[in-house]
Amino acid sequence: MNEPSDKVDLLSKYRLEISVELRPFLNSAITRIGYLFPAAQINPRESHLDIALPAQIDFESLKKQLLYTIYREKIREEGKDSRQALSVAVFGR
């Protein structure tokens, strides 16, 4: 018979402010970062992210990866028109 576990997963809670110009890219960045930090709970709010992490995840590491991913999403979206124009110019499509 299984005994109840005395071990409780405690989550540390953090708040990460996000600048206005980066907010449109949050949802796709959070989705992408999920494969690196599947145990992280990241909830977008109006001006910030509420983040809950188990003890084995370092907040600074997650923050670095998350901000990098948000900027990548921004660059990807802003470069979409240029990539399409280049594709048309090179491949005629």
Rank of each mutant, 00 (worst) to 15 (best):
M1D: 08
M1Q: 12
E3P: 00
D6P: 00
D6H: 00
K7C: 00
V8N: 10
S12C: 06
R15D: 05
L16V: 08
E17M: 12
I18N: 09
S19W: 03
E21R: 10
L22C: 03
F25V: 06
N27A: 05
N27D: 15
S28A: 11
A29M: 13
I30Y: 02
T31L: 04
R32Y: 09
R32K: 09
I33A: 14
I33M: 11
Y35M: 02
L36M: 14
L36K: 14
P38K: 09
P38Q: 04
A39C: 02
A40Q: 01
A40S: 07
I42N: 02
I42Q: 00
N43K: 15
N43G: 03
E46I: 14
S47V: 00
H48W: 11
I51N: 08
I51T: 09
A52M: 11
A52W: 10
L53M: 14
A55C: 05
A55Y: 08
A55V: 10
A55L: 06
D58M: 08
D58F: 07
E60I: 11
S61D: 15
L62H: 06
L67N: 02
T69H: 04
R72K: 04
R72H: 03
K74D: 00
K74H: 02
I75Y: 06
E78N: 04
D81I: 15
S82L: 14
S82A: 10
S82C: 05
R83V: 06
A85E: 07
L86G: 02
S87M: 15
A89N: 06
V90L: 13
V90A: 12
V90E: 13
G92H: 04
